[in-house]
């Protein structure tokens, strides 16, 4: 593995190795001194061309817990405002001597293009509507910790599946590790094409989450309403919102995930988010562990 660009291109073995490594590394988060010397002397650039708080923070902490140095770079407050192109910026970062670049960009495929041009490892932290692979890793790890397995679990991914890079990465990951995935959302926001990947597709929430062990709730992006793709928030909540009543259709031990930040009272109710079935805080914590695993995997070994 020279770069980390998407879940779709990973073998099942690599995916499982990454989860095992993340599980082993998560121990560091509960230490009195949260630092190991593994990546001492390495520098990592966080290049975020799109706003992000938690993903960027998680990458930064992951790098620092492994003793790497981190330079943060975002599209505001940098040369980008002066018209410097993405390529110039990345080339500059490479010339500065960083050992890996973490990239988020609003356009799909930018990390892939960077990886083709750069000799150092490129890590995709979310590209357009393509993939958000570290989010999928943390979701898989959270579910595996709770159930001890992924094989045979029923997973429902609910919301604006069409525009969601999280949904895409999750879909590939859960299917690769043997879970059954149902995609649920309003007409126009879930595509029948996903059946070809082995997912079930439905517009009906009751049908979609019946017996589900895991419900991944996608964030509703407010601008979609302006585009006429969504009904009113009230109607959305009534038909696809994860309320306590709706969750009654799922398995009694259902685990609720949300990649955050949440629109409370729209796609998920506060009551559910803060309830016993919610795993959102585990997700945040695991977000650091999986990013440590990716950095360790890319920078901790020599070429095989």
């Amino acid at each position: 593995m020279d770069d980390f660009l998407g879940i779709a291109e990973l073998s099942t073995k690599t995916l499982e190795d990454l989860l095992d490594t993340a599980q082993a590394l998560s121990e560091i988060l509960s230490r009195p001194i949260k630092k190991v010397p593994t990546l001492r002397g390495r520098a990592i650039a966080n290049a975020f061309f799109e706003p992000s708080t938690r993903t960027r923070n998680a990458f930064e902490l992951a790098a620092k817990y492994l003793s790497a140095d981190v330079v943060n770079f975002s599209s505001t407050g940098s040369s980008l405002e002066k018209g410097e192109s993405v390529w110039d910026t990345v080339k500059t970062l490479e010339a500065l001597g960083v050992d890996a670049v973490v990239v988020r960009h609003r356009e799909a495929g930018v990390p892939q293009l960077m990886a083709e041009r750069l000799a150092i490892p490129v890590i995709n932290a979310g590209d357009g509507e393509h993939e958000h692979p570290t989010q999928a890793l943390l979701d898989l790890l959270t579910v595996r910790q709770r159930f001890g397995r992924l094989q045979g679990l029923r997973v429902a991914i609910v919301g604006d599946v069409l525009h969601s890079r999280v949904a895409r990465s999750d879909l590939y990951g859960f299917l690769a590790l043997g879970a059954r995935v149902t995609l649920v959302g309003p007409p126009g926001l879930v595509s029948e094409e996903w059946r070809e990947w082995g997912a079930e597709v439905t517009w009906d929430l009751a049908q979609g989450i019946r017996g589900a062990h895991v419900v991944q709730v996608l964030r509703i992006q407010r601008e979609r309403q302006a585009q006429g793709l969504l009904p009113s928030w009230q109607e959305y909540r009534e038909r696809w919102g994860i309320t306590r009543e709706h969750l009654g259709w799922a398995d009694p031990n259902v685990l609720v995930l949300h990649p955050g930040p949440q629109n409370r009272g729209v796609e998920i109710d506060s009551e559910v988010l803060e309830g016993a079935q919610s795993a959102v805080l585990d997700q945040v914590r695991n977000g650091v562990a999986v990013r440590m695993a990716v950095l360790y995997r890319l920078l901790g070994g020599a070429a095989e």
Partner: peptide, 18 residues
């Protein structure tokens, strides 16, 4: 594994629980 003095010099080993 996280404390080896040859990090980056050979294929990384799998990590076990500490």
């Amino acid at each position: 594994g996280l404390y080896r003095d040859d990090v980056g010099h050979r294929p990384f080993p799998a990590l076990a629980a500490t």
